[in-house]
């Protein structure tokens, strides 16, 4: 018995998997791990490339890198430019190492806030309410926001360290991040749902944070993956995504541009359907959820590769199987 037919069989099973179900369970496990893992004394460090929120003190199994990053950048300038800042560099490298493994797959499969948005979407779907879309013009404008937020997220802590801004503005992104309020809730901590009246800056920042959380709840109800569009982590990911191991590849010659991938894309990325030249098709908005691969009827047109090895490839058989399932149950 040669290993080849076995391998082919495994490949077929993977490619024809009921992808949505697989992803649902994967996300659920990841959510439980990162929101409740702390109770099992799991601690994966503080350089995680997704929103495993540090404010969820009890349950977190690791901490989102943006929290320590902002704090490190917020050191007094004298200290920032000293040897002590080597820690910033090593911290960043650790973050990059984490990131490289799954690329933006952290967003699509692991990020608790992303999972939460998918669940809110599922709720809407079950209620039979249609989702909203951006127009192309809105998309082109909104997609820049995450880079602006990333820049602010770096500049404001520097300003805090330099004494320009109040310490009540630190860490700026965490203060406006919905994950800070929502994830601790899952371990019974509602203390983030307060307005801090201790100073004017604190009032502003906490009120802004609450407003954005409220927007998040409304937004993710009508728009799939509403927040990911504005996520500075996503922007940071994109900037360092070149050496990542998990990749989304497209073979333009096999693409019929039918737009099936675009139709299922939570992030409304048009390139996935229309671009037949780029092989590395992951864009800045992509969450690498791989739904596009699962919904592509052209064998080999889209695939996810890990370190160059295809691990999930679009196949006709897989498409038909998933499609039939959709027709019968409809999720």
């Amino acid at each position: 018995m040669s290993a080849k037919p076995v391998l082919d069989k495994v490949r077929d099973v993977v490619n024809e998997v009921d992808f949505n179900r697989f992803r649902f369970w994967f996300q659920l496990v990841a959510f439980v791990l990162f929101v409740y893992g702390g109770y099992l004394a799991i601690d994966l460090g503080s350089k995680l490339p997704f929103f495993s929120c540090g404010y969820n003190r009890e349950g977190r199994a690791g901490v989102c890198y943006l929290l320590p990053l902002q704090h490190q950048l917020g050191r007094p300038l004298a200290m920032l430019f000293s040897m002590a800042s080597l820690a910033i560099l090593t911290g960043f490298l650790t973050f990059v190492l984490w990131f490289i493994v799954l690329n933006k797959g952290w967003c699509g499969f692991v990020c608790p806030l992303g999972t939460l948005q998918d669940w809110i979407s599922a709720l809407r779907r079950r209620m039979g309410i249609r989702f909203s879309n951006y127009t192309q013009g809105q998309f082109a404008q909104l997609t820049k926001i995450k880079f602006v937020l990333l820049a602010l997220m770096i500049l404001i802590p520097l300003g805090v360290g330099g004494g320009i801004f109040s310490r009540d503005m630190s860490p700026p992104f965490c203060l406006i991040c919905p994950a800070r309020m929502i994830l601790p809730m899952f371990t019974g901590d509602f203390s983030q749902f307060t307005v801090d009246f201790s100073s004017k800056t604190a009032i502003f920042m906490t009120a802004l944070g609450i407003s954005i959380t409220a927007l998040f709840l409304v937004g993710s109800f009508v728009k799939k993956r509403f927040f990911c569009f504005f996520c500075p982590m996503s922007a940071l990911h994109y900037l360092i995504s070149k050496p990542a191991l998990l990749k989304l590849k497209k073979d333009g010659s096999k693409c019929t541009r039918c737009g099936d991938c675009y139709a299922v894309c939570d992030m409304e990325i048009k390139e996935i359907a229309d671009d037949v030249k780029t092989t590395d098709i992951m864009t800045d908005d992509c969450t690498l959820c791989l739904k596009c691969v699962a919904s592509c009827p052209e064998s080999g047109a889209l695939k996810a590769t890990f370190a160059g090895i295809p691990i999930f490839v679009s196949t006709e058989a897989g498409f038909i199987k998933r499609m039939n399932k959709g027709c019968q149950h409809g999720k």
Binding site: R125, G128, I129, R130, F131, T256, R257, C258, G259, D260, C261, Y262, A263, V264, D266, A273, K291, S295, C296, P297, F319, I320, M323, G326, C327, G330, K331
Partner: peptide, 26 residues
């Protein structure tokens, strides 16, 4: 007969839009 439709959410709005795309885009 070749091009097939993928639907993300099996709601009428999504199904009809996806169908429309299938008849135009490929």
């Amino acid at each position: 007969l070749y091009d097939m439709t993928a639907v993300d959410e099996w709601l009428l709005n999504d199904m009809v839009d996806s169908l429309a795309d299938k008849y135009l885009k490929p």
